[in-house]
Design a protein around this nucleic acid. Structure first.
Length: 650
RNA sequence: GCGCCUGUAGCUCAGCUGGAUAGAGCAUCGGACUUCGAAUCCGCAGGUCGCAGGUUCGAAUCCUGCCGGGCGCGCCA
């Protein structure tokens, strides 16, 4: 695939070589090094480059003088006649006006490449591990998880399109206190079938069950109280699992249980495993509704040696850190809880070490192994990220909720320390363990609104709005509409800005709902093509659109040529929202073109040459919308069904 | 207190990583359907880019200091 931008960059690169020989420039530039912009103002041409600014210092001339000398050379090397005019403007810009043949070629570029239009290799197949969601399997996904999920999944798609070798991964947090609490909560409900039945009946009506009266005896104060826990217990009971043990033992989450065994006597451990597995299944379902699938599901249990054929990497790496003096044993500060017995000395990671580069330094040394010997979440994360790099990835990206940002420098520090550790151990690959291999994208919160008013989301009350609820609520007559709206609207903000998600707007079928607007554009293009086909007016797929002449058409042809550039930019910046914005802009441009010309210059008209050229443009636009929407995981309908208008006055 | 994010039109936000006269959508107002989708389009109006310095040909963008908003700083995850 060759793109318009590549051709122009190539041309300018040739010109810099010619200029070098002519003594005008001190050096030549490769196409990659040439920045090419699309000026907003039409008077500034179709494309502009500021390369004379960049070269001015080395040339010892001012940019304007350089541009004056360079412009004629550009004209000279343009033997194929792509450029109609080269103009020196402002303090040294080079404004290019493209010839008709040049901008028209972008239409054929799209039709030639079809579904592959926009794919490139800017990422040079760099191996990237992209970890996202990784929500604890202790409950349903909420809206915030959904945003991270959509961002991560779309980023993977965009980066792949830009030529990165991306592997997506979900880290299953299936070890530790939270999972233990889940197991214990489910275990309690399993033990009291009558109370469970009663509670489920109340929950069915949407009412909360009072705590502790409506709950089983001995239900932990800090247990999970949502209705889904009771339902989870019921589901386990339905497949014949009971809770025979009289006592709950807190070690249930820490000890091995074979997740594969389906039958047999259920003890605390297998109940815990079953419980998180079931929650994980629901998470998988929710993600499926958004068309999100992972390459890997990485179990934390394997890092502790709890899964079959795994060893305890957590304690292993801890030992090595101790040996290299990156960790130390200490009393540290006792837990706040006065009843707690400090069993022994805890092990701390030297996150504050002077040997760490400042950006990777923590404010405090953190515990990795508790006084009682149990590892913290942080310890597992150390082993996990060591494992990630050991698998050979060049680059790691983690998508995290913004409330985890305190974690970032700590984790980078760990990777740096692991690099140092490996150097000490004589590992020839040690150089790959550096803090800057890890990149963390922080996703800000989602505020749910309904018609402009905030939807209350009290996590404490146990009645927070789940992702599933939101998808269901914004689903209209089209089965994919919920997914489409959620995905697109989550991408309408960059990750580090808070996002307002209005349930009412998401259902709306007008311009203030961007997903509808873009899909409408696509459907409209389809209907034009349908019409043309019925009338037998469709040109050959390879037909040259040489009869395109309107300014609107030039603008549209140039706009579709931007698509591959947008993908590269979005991938490099890790900002999928740029693609969403591009598509809404393109939809606006097309709808404007259509409406402005519906009387005087309709697509399907008298003249065959013009009709054919416009149909080629329509085809190309449809292709770009299709490719772009697929990249975002949003459907591109051929027609839009009408949503019955709900009458507010009734 | 320390650290991260953020501050752009009345509202919600873009702004191509330093480029030319800062742009969209809502909302207000005024226009446009006999045709391939009016679920659309066109126009008017709206700005000290939080404030003050600095860096340079050039700053909404980079550096410093204030001010306002959000979030983190656990032997939780």
């Amino acid at each position: 695939m060759t793109t318009l931008h590549e051709r122009i960059r190539g041309l300018l690169s040739n010109a810099t070589q010619a200029a070098l020989i002519a003594g005008v420039l001190p050096q030549a530039l490769t196409p990659r090094e040439i920045s090419l912009e699309r000026p907003r103002q039409a008077s500034h041409g179709d494309m502009a480059t500021n390369l004379c600014f960049a070269m001015a210092k080395a040339a010892g001339k001012n940019p304007r003088a350089l541009a004056d000398a360079f412009a004629p050379i550009v004209r000279e090397v343009d033997t194929l006649g792509w450029i109609q005019a080269v103009e020196v403007a402002g303090p040294g810009f080079l404004n290019l006006r493209l010839s008709d043949a040049a901008w028209q070629a972008s239409v054929t570029d799209v039709l030639d490449a079809a579904g592959e239009f926009g794919l490139g290799n800017a990422g040079a197949q760099e191996r990237v591990l992209l970890e996202f969601v990784s929500a604890n399997p202790t409950g349903p996904m909420h809206v915030g998880h959904g945003r991270g999920a959509v961002l991560g999944d779309t980023l993977a798609r965009v980066m792949r399109a830009a030529g990165y070798d991306v592997t997506t991964e979900y880290y299953i947090n299936n070890v530790g206190n939270q999972v233990g609490k889940l197991g214990e909560s489910v275990w309690c409900w399993l033990r009291e079938p009558q109370k469970r039945a009663a509670a489920l009946a109340i929950w069915q009506n949407g009412d909360p069950v009072p705590f502790p009266d409506g709950f089983p005896n001995g239900f932990p104060e800090d247990g999970y109280r949502g209705a889904y826990i009771g339902q989870c217990a019921q589901d386990l009971a339905d497949v014949g699992i009971s809770a025979p043990d009289i006592q709950w033992s807190d070690d249930a989450a820490w000890l091995a249980a074979d997740p594969a065994s389906i039958t047999g006597r259920a003890d605390n451990r297998t109940i815990t495993v079953r419980a998180w597995q079931r929650q994980l299944d629901r998470i998988r379902d929710d993600l499926g509704k958004l068309d999100i699938r992972f390459d890997n599901w990485f179990s934390e249990r394997r890092l502790h040696g709890l899964d079959p054929d795994t060893r305890d990497a957590v304690h292993d790496v801890t030992k090595r850190l101790l040996g290299a003096d990156w960790a130390y044993e200490d009393e540290g500060q006792a837990p706040d809880d006065e009843d707690a017995v400090v069993a022994g000395k805890a092990i701390f990671f030297r996150g504050t070490s002077e040997n760490l580069p400042k950006p990777f330094r923590d404010g405090k040394d953190r515990v990795i192994i508790r006084g009682d010997g149990r590892p913290t979440y942080f310890a597992a994360d150390i082993a996990y990220h060591d494992h990630k790099l050991a698998r050979g990835f060049d680059h790691l990206i983690n998508v995290l909720g913004a409330d985890h940002h305190g974690y970032v420098s700590r984790l980078k520090g760990v990777i740096h320390a692991l690099g140092d550790l490996r150097r000490q151990e004589g590992d020839i690959n040690a150089a790959r363990w550096t803090g800057d291999r890890l990149e963390v994208l922080l996703v800000q919160m989602v505020a749910l609104l309904r018609d402009g008013k905030p939807v209350p989301m009290g996590k404490r009350s146990g009645e927070f709005v789940t992702l599933r609820d939101v998808i269901d609520e914004v689903t209209t007559s089209e089965p994919t509409s919920g997914r489409d709206a959620v995905r697109f609207l989550f991408l309408m903000r960059k990750a580090d800005a808070q996002l307002d998600f209005d349930l009412e707007v998401a259902r709306r079928t007008s311009m203030d709902n961007p997903v509808y607007y873009v899909q409408y554009g696509h459907a409209r293009l389809c209907s034009i093509l349908d019409r043309a086909e019925k009338e037998g007016r469709l040109p050959a797929l390879a037909a040259r659109p040489s009869a395109l002449a309107l300014d609107d058409e030039r603008a549209l042809a140039l706009a579709i040529a931007d698509y591959p550039e947008v993908i590269v930019r979005a991938a490099r910046a890790r900002e999928p929202h740029q693609v969403a914005y591009y598509l809404t802009d393109l939809a606006r441009a097309f709808n404007g073109y259509y409406s402005r010309n519906k009387h005087d210059a309709r697509v399907i008209g008298e003249d065959d040459a013009t009709t054919h050229a416009r149909l080629q443009l329509v085809r190309a636009l449809k292709q770009v919308f299709g490719n772009g929407l697929r990249l975002l995981g949003v459907s591109a309908p051929e027609r839009m069904t009408t949503l019955p208008e709900t009458d507010p006055e009734v």
